[in-house]
């Protein structure tokens, strides 16, 4: 358990960085430092976090960083880890990538690194659109959301990255949210102890791109979990487990109605009075939980297929 008061009193983030007010990525980076301390190196492909670093020769993110071309994060991290291993150094190599750097342009390098079971932590900090370039649609933008390239709302659903990574049969896959830092920190600490490829998908509501007030980042993040839009779970060595904050939302009657989540964001404004559109989002939630149910019931061999093969 992570207890706030037991976290050492030190600088975790880096004030004076270039993030927008209320930025979920800056929040996430502080939790990353709380969890991993000073042993981590970040590999950051193009995205908001490239800009958050601010202007050299200073950097507004409190980590050593290798900035890298958009499509290359999974690969560059693999090389770094190999070099550290060769030199007998046990540094933690963390990819900190946005939704584009993970699910779209970065997907190939991510999939390759996962398939090779590289000993790295890959974090997708998911603000559900290309925010850095000005809120364009991504593969992780949810159905119906306005973006600057989907003026009438996106017509397709969000790509379900965590399930795709589970299908890669890596030792550890988890979802997290900036609204639940304890959960995220705990998952990071666990990931740091596991050898092999670890994937954590961090839900990161963005006040600028999602059109909500900058003070509401935490609230929106928590609503995503409470409505069942963003279930928190872990998949560890073949065993699937809902995280404590999401457990009760398996029962649909316990979930906060999705409209509560949609209506505080300007990006869904145009579909609030279209019940058929909201129904599509509800169906997406149902499908996600159907997958979760399937995974809960069918897993728990306590070993990944990879380990079974090696036996």
């Amino acid at each position: 358990m992570v207890i706030i008061h037991k976290l050492p009193n030190r600088r975790y983030g880096m004030p004076g960085n270039a993030s927008c007010p209320g930025c979920p990525e800056s929040m996430g980076l502080r939790y990353l430092k709380m969890a991993l301390g000073d042993k981590a190196v970040l590999v950051i492909p193009a995205g908001c976090s490239s800009v958050i670093q601010g202007i050299g020769p200073k950097s507004g993110i409190n980590f050593p960083i290798l900035n890298i071309a958009f499509a290359a994060a999974g690969a560059a991290a693999s090389g770094m880890k190999a070099a550290f291993e060769v030199q007998g150094k046990d540094y933690i190599v963390v990819v900190w990538a946005g939704d584009g750097g993970t699910a779209d342009i970065g997907f190939q390098a991510l999939s390759g690194a996962a398939e090779r079971n590289e000993d790295i932590i890959y974090i997708c900090v998911d603000n559900e659109a290309y925010m850095n370039t000005g809120i364009q649609r991504s593969g992780l933008t949810p159905y119906g959301a306005w973006t600057t390239t989907t003026w009438t709302g996106k017509k397709e659903h969000k790509k379900n990255m965590p399930f795709i990574l589970i299908a890669h049969d890596v030792p550890y896959v988890a979802t997290a949210s900036v609204g639940y830092p304890h959960d995220f920190i705990e998952k990071l600490r666990k990931a740091a102890k596991i050898k092999g490829f670890k994937y954590i998908h961090l839900h990161a509501p963005d006040p600028v791109g999602w059109r909500f007030d900058s003070s509401l980042t935490v609230k929106v993040a928590q609503l995503a979990v409470q409505t069942g839009m963003w279930p928190l779970f872990e998949y560890e060595r073949g065993s699937f487990k809902l995280s404590p904050f999401s457990k009760k939302y398996k029962d649909p009657s316990k979930r906060v109605p999705v409209i509560e989540y949609l209506k505080i964001q300007g990006r869904f404004k145009h579909l609030l009075n279209k019940p058929e559109e909201i129904k599509k989002i509800e169906e997406y939630i149902e499908r996600t939980w159907w997958w979760i149910d399937l995974l809960e019931r069918s897993t728990n061999p306590a070993k990944t297929a990879r380990e079974l093969l090696n036996k």
Partner: peptide, 10 residues
């Protein structure tokens, strides 16, 4: 990218 990452790490 991989060999570049490795080279950057020494």
């Amino acid at each position: 990218a991989t060999v570049y990452g490795a080279a950057s790490a020494g």
